[in-house]
Nucleic acid binder design. Structure first.
Length: 116
RNA sequence: CGAGUAGGCCGGAUGGUCGCGGGCGCAGUGCUGAAAAGCCGCGCACGAGGAAAGUCCGGGCUCCAUAGGGCAAAGGUGCCGGGUAAUCCCCGGUGAAGGCGACUUCAAGGAUAGUGCAACAGAAAUAAACCGCCAUACCCAUAGAAAGGAGCAAUCCUGAAGGGUAAGGUAAGGAUGGAAAGGCGAGGUAAGAGCUCACCGGCCCCACGGCGACGUGGGGUGCUCUGUAAACCCCACCUGGAGCAACACCGUGACAAGGAACAUAAAGGGCGGCCCGUCCGUUCCUUAGAGGUGGCUGGAGCCUUGUAGCAAUACAAGGCCUAGACAGAUGAUCAUUCAAGACAGAACCCGGCUUACAGGUCUACUCUAUAU
């Protein structure tokens, strides 16, 4: 599998926020905007509201790992921005994965037939 | 054995599978390219901390200012000596305070340069006679009196020599206070007072020891001297400003702003689906610098040994290369194990300080008890 394509520029994030659709759950918000690159790019944002840098890094890693595992099942040509929301307890790998699958399915990005 | 003091070290471990970051090597054609090279692929080892944190000090480095120097302002530092690139840091001392002790703590110059402040309490707060004590003069009293206490009063109670007034003396005593006119004892006196004396303390001088802070000893001086300088201030010394988003280079002309011309209302689109509402036109010019590369890790570097030094540290020899990202790399899962894992994530780099921290471990020393 090739490297995970990511969003890097602040401009791209702003475009997805302002023009894209979104869906939210307890821990996450996912923004989606179609692009014409014929691939799916992902950006992850964890603000300082989440906690100290150790907690923010932890959250990012959990999201990134889950995206990596789900990437082969994503269909279409989109830019995604995943925003972490403030939680009372530190999230586990499984709850992040569960919410992410739920949100992506709601946004019709997840192909249910392509189960591994 | 128990209680304690000081300092150092570690900060879960091992293995499997999948994955990430930069580096090196390979293949050289699957893609881009004229090439260099890049992407992709394979392999290899490496990949967060003792505080990476707070950004509180000190430097390196970069740009700006500056002939050199001085003065002033502003800020900082403040016992002595040493260390260092440098410091408000470190080491070794001195003094003071605390502890039986190992040891710990200290923003430790100047209060006769000047100014300010000292609440409350207390008789009085930088200077003092409110009470008390005392001799003198006058008056009352010297026997159930005067004065004192109880009672509206008559009167009763206590009890045996004193009491009141005046103008004085006196800082020994007085439930205050952070601080009360050096402390304590003796002499002295009407009562007292450094008034006199011994000891302690203060101040001044001398000698000796020490580079010095200072210490020890001797002599002199009765000594009128409150605290506060993290209050102003005085004295001595130090300091140009801004920071890696610095700065240098390559560079597209994005987004945006302003102006001019055309159009000014329809369609369409965004604001999660609908309604309402609201926003969005095109061309040219000017201002604008998207993006990328370097800076970016080999350095006041780390380890070992030796020499000098009480030490901080310096020097020498040998060995080592140990993160370098730019939406920002350490994760997921399985197994085993133990003491069941705290605080916490590099962002130009060092030296310090401060703060946070589960637990483990080592060394030196002190005290007490027991035993020998």
């Amino acid at each position: 599998m090739s490297k995970l394509p990511v969003l890097t520029k602040n401009r791209e994030f702003q475009r997805v926020y302002s023009k894209g659709k979104y869906s939210a759950s307890a821990l996450l918000v996912v923004y989606v905007l179609p692009n014409n690159l014929n691939l799916i790019r992902v950006g992850i944002t964890v603000s300082k509201k989440i906690g100290k840098s150790v907690d923010r890094n932890r959250m990012k890693r959990l999201i990134r790992e889950n995206i990596r595992l789900l990437y082969g099942r994503l269909v279409g040509s989109y830019d995604l921005v995943i925003v972490a929301r403030k939680a009372d307890e530190p999230a586990s790998f499984d709850t992040v994965g569960k919410e992410l699958r739920y949100l992506l399915y709601k946004l019709e990005l997840l192909d249910k037939d392509k189960q591994k």
